[in-house]
Amino acid sequence: MADLAAEIKQLIIEALDLEDMTVEDINSDEPLFGEGLGLDSIDALELGLALKNKYQITIDAESEDTKKHFASVSALVAFISENSEG
C-alpha cells in the first residue's frame, strides 16, 4: 500500500507538472483539491486521464463517489486497489 501511495504521488507530480515538489511533500491524508495540495478542476481531469492510462480504471465523471475517490492520495489508493485490473 505504501508503494502504491508513493507511485500515485509520483504520478500526480509528473502528470500535473508540479515541478518543485517531491513525493515527500504530499501528505497521503491531506485534501488534493482546494485546500491541501491546492489542485483545481482541470487537474482533476488530467489526473483522471493519467490514472486511467496507468491502472486501466474507469472513472465516472457524473458519479458522486468519484469526488470521494479523488479526496486524497489514501482514497485513491483504496479505489485503485479495489478496481485495478493489473
Binding site: L16, L45, E46, L49, N53
Partner: peptide, 10 residues
C-alpha cells in the same frame, strides 16, 4: 490513438 491532455488542450 491516445486521449488528449485536458490541460494541453485548454
Amino acid at each position: 490513438g491516445n486521449e488528449l491532455s485536458p490541460t494541453g488542450f485548454s
